[in-house]
Design a protein around this nucleic acid. Structure first.
Lengths: 114, 114
DNA sequence: TAAGTATATAACTATTTGCTTATATAGTAA
DNA sequence: TTACTATATAAGCAAATAGTTATATACTTA
């Protein structure tokens, strides 16, 4: 059946996107907090373009939204995505990543940046 | 925390494995039925080595088990896997792939082979 | 035993991926 | 305006991926 086939296609695409530790952690964080690019750069200790490219992949299929706030661009989860319930159910089974944001806060990186 | 990090690692590895349409469909089928290699070859219309290689990846992290039955080697889901509940919850949200096995049955491929 | 069938592995290839550095774009503030 | 900050994009590269064909292994059956 065509609809079935399309859904498996879409599911595989989503799972592949989540099948990268950086993106998976991003999504887990974004599920509870909006974040800007520079925060992710700090958290993952990779280059800013690398973070931008991960976010672009997530944005390209509408999993996340971007919103400019002054100098910064904040990313948030798109909870209206057709597949958000699917994604959410996966994310809910992962350990909280709040410690990473807390660490930023302690460093002052969260406040400085956003 | 190290344990958290390890779990995100493992989850990403699992999701990456599921993030391939062939393997995802295999897992969905195996969740309800044992299958042998030649059935998958018929279903996916790719070469036998390609199927063997996908199954090997799934077996390498113990997601599936193999069992010889006479001339054939049957694969089944390893329901005792530490992460099986995680996997199962994903698979449960996918459309049934039974039509693919039914089609084999109609062709006589299922009976002939296994 | 020899021939046939099922599966695994090896070797190769084209494509995709995730990273990097360099640069472009866009907003902020002096 | 000019300098600065935040982000995106381009280009290039090494590694990973998924497929192929050729071949090896292992069981079945005559």
């Amino acid at each position: 059946m065509i609809s079935t086939s399309i859904e498996m296609d879409k599911a595989a695409v989503l799972l592949k996107l989540l099948g990268d530790k950086t993106r998976l952690t991003m999504m887990k964080i974004l599920d509870n907090h909006d974040c800007c690019v520079c925060e992710f750069v700090e958290i993952f200790q990779v280059s800013q373009p690398s973070i931008s490219q991960h976010l672009r992949k997530l944005r390209d299929i509408d999993l996340v939204k971007e919103e400019r706030r002054g100098q910064w661009i904040f990313y948030s989860i798109n909870k209206t995505h057709e597949f958000y319930p699917f994604i959410e159910q996966i994310l809910s089974q992962l350990p909280s990543q709040d410690d990473k944001l807390n660490k930023l806060e302690e460093q002052g990186s969260r406040i400085t940046c956003c």
